[in-house]
Design a binder for these strands. Structure first.
Lengths: 138, 138
DNA sequence: TATTGTTATACTCTATAACTATA
DNA sequence: TATAGTTATAGAGTATAACAATA
């Protein structure tokens, strides 16, 4: 029992937003002297919640060797640290430095500012949108 | 008069979808032996609607020199063609070849298939979502 | 003079394959 | 043997600067 009367239409709109986003992130990243991929990594490491490198590769859906390079560059800029894992000595977990934590906050602040079109929706419409998007993410 | 009671929350949900999408596109592109950037270009050139290279650079929000390389690779695979513009001899417009047109259709078919979570919304909810997203894109 | 697209260059992103250390 | 991360390598994406052809 498929139910895609308007599902295709909604998905196409979301795709248009995704592609538009592809154009928005690079200049925003450049302002902070980061690449889009580095923004993604910084976004995924929450302060005080170290992330194993392998888990990062899974979330980014990329090869582990790729994470090595990304982490090298972020570490050489003093934004993150590799720490040995206590449980398994093969594993290295990633942690934000104080500088990295500040830059991440700045990044989220810029990124999470909703566009004007979103603020033009009424309170009620915004709540509806939140409810529907939440079910999309589940 | 700002109205961001739930706007920030909605935007954060959209960002989560964007980042999730960053993980979905590469494998889908790889199936067709394309890169994500090449998918974006193919998506932007509609059959029978030639696009000037400069306009493509604007839409992708990237440097013109970058478009040269992207187009080189797509052209060498026989997917698109450079054509001289009749109006301005400096301009080259991009056009799909028959092969490119077929591959684009295949790409859209794969990309535009809505995820299951979207099809689980009711008809009425889908319509509401379409209405709200449309206003977001305006 | 200004604009369109190209070339040369350098750096980042990405995957594959071979490797080291640990499990 | 299997897994986590690294290294070497190669190709693609990206920006900057200098350039040719055209406007």
């Amino acid at each position: 029992m498929k139910n895609d009367g308007h599902a295709c239409e909604a998905w196409q709109l979301l795709l248009r937003l995704f592609f538009a986003q592809r154009a928005i992130l690079p200049p925003l990243a450049a302002e902070l002297e980061l690449s889009p991929a580095q923004c993604h990594v910084l976004h995924l490491i929450e302060p005080g919640r170290p992330v194993p490198m392998g888990q990062l590769a899974d979330t980014l859906a990329c090869d582990a060797s790729n994470v090595t390079g990304l982490v090298d560059r972020l570490e050489s800029r003093g934004l993150i640290r590799r720490q040995p894992s206590s449980a398994d000595r093969r594993v290295k977990v990633l942690d934000l430095t104080p500088t990295g934590s500040r830059l991440r906050a700045l990044l989220l602040d810029r990124m999470e500012k909703p566009p004007d079109t979103l603020r033009r929706l009424s309170e009620r419409e915004q709540r509806t949108l939140v409810r529907l998007l939440t079910r999309l993410i589940e």
